[in-house]
Nucleic acid binder design. Structure first.
Lengths: 370, 370
DNA sequence: CTGTTAGCGCGTTCAG
DNA sequence: CTGAACGCGCTAACAG
């Protein structure tokens, strides 16, 4: 466990010189190939030489150069993660996915290269063509996403965070229709008869983002099933517009007793608006969230359906890595442990992983009498 | 501008075969080195061959392999971005920095490899030693951060997002002391005499994080300067503890009329608590934020000091890249445009970039009479 | 069986 | 403008 001071082969000045497999071989008194075999374990090495080599490695603080390995194997062991960025509209959720996808990729020995959309689709193309990564994960895909087209055109493997039936790529997603339907149904089951549904913002619906469309479907379905008066309040990226719409809906008669929220970016502003309308949560108005960040401490006091970020990240990392073909000299078994997941399908065309929602947080309060 | 179908040298099946500089050379009827010179522009090439080569490149859709370049030049053109992760406590701010640092790095032709702390400090060590990146950016450094020690031990260049006088590394930060002092001073200037300051959480103070310590200093200083009654409410990672403390402080006599908040993660919960105490914002209680995410739509209605994420990201990317020595065959001028920034210092030991705060949002409301 | 030698992967650059 | 060597690690083929 003691980390020996790495002694560079030349001087100890700025550690600018690199120690290579040759240095290790020399020090251990063996051939470079022997060192390589010790590292990869792909061949039997006598215990004596193995120990000598290991000692040399430790003393020199040797670590193989990733670029040399990649050049030889045609495998970078890097995943490109394409974060969508509508300029000026940072979504906290994207950062959370970035973290969790990175963790999930590490489990399979992969690192993650983060890419914003500031170059449009150019960054993805550049990374794919220069082989900086083995596969891509696309966040927040939308209908006819140009990034999907880039992957197809380049024959570059990838997987999607979000639902897109048109893209012939593996994907994972929360079942938004069921999620919103569940939230509304549970709210109705708690006794609420007049429910507001604050859907995704209009521009998200216009972009035909899956979660936006399916959320609307779920609300409609639950309204029919429960017979409750579910009124739709389309959200808007502009907080002032949102607040105006919400305030109107909150005071319109008959007065609603519950608010189901899918558009969460503006939550603080929204809660403020509720307070300004003189309503206390949950006494006067029950608020239920759909798609909240898990473990977000600021909303732990509200009933909600969390976005299964960890599960989605695990799934998408796995899907992307599975889509990578074998490397140049790759002899590793291609038949991996099948994806043990309830709602996934490997049998049909493109594999996917659809996740069923679960309620979290406190129970939904019933409407207050009066 | 028309993107010709990339025709692989072998077949068009799964685009699995790579087109190399040799393919281009063959097609253009020149030597590989000529193609290289055309690409790098590091040598005069006759217009005729230049065009022939360019045509071949376009037709084949050629793009140089990053691993080959890196192997040769000892430069990855990748920055490692080490996101701290206290398990279970995702901070949206980290994601935002990840995005912005990535954008800033791109300006200098660098990509960003995202690293979580799930392997502890191991990930950073691995990336540095395998030369997956040329330098590291450490987010949210704390006192005696083990990651700093890893960089020192490996002689790996890096820069810090956050302030640490002990680490001999370049850094950038918001001047938190001035920021909190400014917020308190402006609040006092608006007429408030009894002000609550909700500081960072106790565990952040205990970890001696710069922003936490400096924020406290700023509040103290402003209290002395303004003569206002500034009461400290130490925040806590547990929302329930926070709410209890805040509720007590809000009702203690004399009743405070303003709340300056540095600990923003729990903001929605906090606003809820304010509302539950029967207080309306800003009528009964003025709320001022310090260190909010810029462009965060949910808090646009509150006076605040935004965290200068974009400027910090630009600075830290630049600092990290400047810390990279020349590559193997790097002849590019080492004397770059000096960092033109008001509050930065390149002259002293380690360069840094300290950013002065600015108020944003609506003006601070005066206390309501009564 | 265990270790060694040789050649490859791809782009860059020096000497020709 | 071209030929060849090089950067570093992997692996097939060969030798003891």
């Amino acid at each position: 466990m003691d980390s020996t001071q790495p002694t560079g082969p030349k001087t100890g000045r700025v550690e600018v010189e690199m120690t290579t497999i040759k240095d290790v071989a020399e020090r251990a008194g063996v051939a470079p190939s022997t060192v390589s075999y010790v590292l990869s374990g792909s061949r039997k090495i006598s215990e004596d030489t193995r120990r000598a080599v290991q000692a040399a490695i430790d003393e020199l603080g040797y670590h193989p150069r990733a670029s040399a390995r990649t050049l030889r194997s045609a495998r970078t062991r890097v995943l490109a993660l394409a974060a969508p960025r509508v300029p000026g509209a940072y979504r906290a959720i994207d950062g959370r996915f970035a973290i969790d996808v990175t963790d999930a990729a590490r489990v399979h020995g992969y690192d993650v290269l983060l890419m914003t959309d500031s170059d449009g689709v150019g960054g993805l193309r550049r990374v794919a063509r220069s082989r900086l990564a083995d596969a891509a994960v696309l966040m927040a895909v939308e209908d006819r996403d140009p990034r999907v087209e880039v992957l197809r055109e380049l024959g570059f493997p990838g997987a999607l965070l979000g639902h897109d039936d048109h893209a012939a790529l593996p994907w994972t997603d929360l079942d938004w229709e069921v999620a919103v339907a569940l939230a509304v149904r549970e709210t109705a089951a708690a006794g609420h008869r007049r429910i507001l549904f604050l859907s995704s913002a209009e521009h998200e619906v216009a972009a035909r983002r899956g979660y936006a469309l399916h959320g609307l479907d779920g609300a409609r379905r639950a309204a029919v099933e429960t017979g409750a008066d579910v009124r739709l309040v389309p959200s808007h990226r502009d907080p002032d517009v949102l607040v105006r719409r919400l305030s109107e809906a909150l005071t319109a008669r008959p007065v609603p007793t519950a608010l189901v929220v899918q558009h969460l970016i503006l939550l603080p502003r929204l809660l403020d608006a509720v307070a300004e309308a003189g309503l206390r949560v949950p006494h006067d108005l029950t608020v239920v969230l759909v798609g909240s960040l898990p473990d977000e401490l600021g909303v732990r006091h509200l009933p909600r359906i969390d976005l299964p970020v960890a599960e989605m990240s695990t799934a998408v990392a796995r899907l992307a890595i599975d889509a990578i073909g074998p490397g140049r000299d790759d002899r590793s078994s291609t038949s991996q442990e099948p994806f043990a997941a309830p709602a996934s399908s490997m049998s049909s065309g493109t594999p996917h992983h659809l996740i069923q929602p679960r309620m979290a947080g406190p129970v939904i309060a019933p409407p207050s009498p009066g």
